[in-house]
Design a protein around this nucleic acid. Structure first.
Lengths: 328, 328
DNA sequence: TTGTAGGCGTTATCAG
DNA sequence: CTGATAACGCCTACAA
């Protein structure tokens, strides 16, 4: 069903139908009414592809996220989608995974789809490969990265100060008498590298001279469980652990419980993200709120402004804050 | 950058460029090479909207979900997106919320975008309003509902047998000596109505004559906490609770703990969904696995088949299964 | 092997 | 107030 079909049946030209569809003035009330009746009758729905073609604007944006199942990304994707749906935009979403080939590919796909803006969620998009793909295929449209940044004219970043945040976690643990700390990391994203940096800086500020204890773990409850046991076997002196994400803290906490440690007196620990995991675990986990939600909201707003022809700050940083619970 | 721009610079016609872009045969190797060089040089990326217009196919599908932040929907959306990305499709996603006006609206939006198929995630789409919107604006494309169904020629459903599933939960509780049961419900979706039905049928089968005890709770930890306290105040005889979703079970479990009940001896409880909440809570929650993941996977596969011109079963049901943990 | 012409469904610009 | 006509960017006969 096209405007031509409607036009034919109404005995008018397609342009007149188009005017009615778009509520343009200058159509005789009677013909307008006649056309509207037909529009209803056939449930006419204008082809947005064709419309986008002449309008040179399709009101679509892209959302790139490594894996929407990660709690911290789910909220972000939700926020962005909602914010844009309100404005009549459609969101194309891709779970890119962590590989750079896929990221490059999806950037090209979004480019072919002629999206008008992109939100990338997660520091994992802050890579050379993404930068190159963007500069080649997406240099014309605004891009906002949640918790990441690229030095490109059309890229904007909203970041959490996780580095400073983690060093305040160190301070917190020290203030409670825990001075032999370890960091358990899940993967080496730019964000996590910052966390480790914050960990080291925190220790240094507290006057610790030795090399920081950092362990790697799989991003699973079991992974954290095992690594925590190993960590304390190899470093029995440890009395405080910072986990790079709440999920690990939850799994690790269970290991501590099973090993008979008393939390938080004997050993304290924290997560990062202030996610549902922190709230649901027993004991409830003290966590660094890195404001992912605010970040996504801000990213969405930035992109909205940019699309509206306005300006946005190239790079902003939001302060993270500790949410104390039962593990410190 | 269009094929015309490339054509001009290459000194050929647009059709020749088009042939190269689409790897069509019948282009002289030398001109092909020349064109390919320019394509690379300018990072040409074909306009999929224009392409979709003549091809009458844009390789886009729609995903409708009430709220992607609900754990049981997140996985579904992920699965569907991944499955279609593999095949070169783009997914437009909308968080519709629970209102029917929004659902109708987004169905119309997807129709205007000319998506080629739709996956609706959740029984919340099994309503008269959705049925009407679909029959008016989407009668031509295949639609698959995860855990729901509509009696329309182009709608397919993959369902979990939650009714039978819940009655096996009743059996389980009875078998462990818990015979005074209550059901705590969060909202009256078709799916939850089935759960309540299963609850009642289970009781009846166990020879219980009295009216089933059903309480309503907000879908929050606190909501479940409060309602659980109220429930046991008003019905101190209760020794077994089935919560309509794991989230409630988690919040309720904490209330039981705080009230000094011994779980599972004194009182047992279960959740439904077998989600991360069941796994993360302490004690770990026995839950009915309603196979949401398999359901989404199956829905995606169905839609793929349908889009490929194949057939799919109109309505299938997947058996749910109890995952026993520490609360029964 | 290559180019021309027509059309996909719209909207915008002119005339009338 | 209404109707041609030409785009938008691409693909596909058909003709050369």
């Amino acid at each position: 069903m096209t405007i031509y079909d409607i036009a034919k049946e109404a005995g008018v030209s397609a342009s007149t139908v188009s005017r009615v569809v778009n509520n343009k003035p200058g159509v005789h009330p009677s013909t307008k009414e006649k056309i509207e009746k037909l529009l209803k009758k056939y449930h006419y729905s204008p082809n947005e592809m064709a419309r986008g073609l002449i309008k040179q604007s399709n009101h679509m944006i892209g959302i790139l996220v490594a894996d929407i199942r990660n709690v911290h990304y789910t909220d972000g994707a939700y926020t962005v989608e909602k914010e844009f749906a309100k404005l009549g935009y459609c969101c194309i979403i891709f779970n890119t995974g962590s590989g750079s080939a896929e990221k490059t590919e999806y950037i090209q796909v979004l480019s072919k789809r002629r999206v008008e803006g992109v939100v990338m969620i997660g520091s994992t998009f802050q890579t050379k490969e993404v930068e190159e793909a963007v500069s080649q295929f997406m240099s014309e449209i605004p891009i906002v990265i949640v918790n990441g940044y690229l030095e490109l004219p059309n890229v904007y970043g909203v970041l959490a100060d996780e580095c400073a945040g983690v060093s305040t976690l160190v301070d917190l643990l020290f203030s409670k008498g825990h001075t032999r700390l370890a960091f358990v990391n899940n993967c080496y994203t730019p964000s996590n590298l910052l966390k480790i940096k914050g960990f080291e800086e925190g220790l240094e500020r507290q006057g610790v001279k030795e090399k920081a204890v950092v362990y790697d773990a799989e991003t699973t409850l079991e992974g954290a469980y095992e690594v925590t046991k190993k960590l304390l076997r190899e470093h029995p002196e440890i009395d405080g652990i910072i986990y790079s994400v709440d999920l690990l803290a939850s799994g690790g906490g269970r290991a501590l419980l099973d090993m008979g440690y008393h939390v938080p007196d004997q050993i304290a620990y924290t997560g990062i993200d202030n996610s549902v995991y922190a709230e649901f675990s027993t004991p409830k986990i003290t966590s660094l709120d890195n404001k992912l939600l605010e970040l996504s909201m801000m990213a969405a707003r930035f992109l909205v402004d940019l699309l509206g022809g306005g300006k946005a700050t190239k790079k902003v940083m939001v302060f993270s804050a500790i949410v104390e619970r039962e593990t410190t």
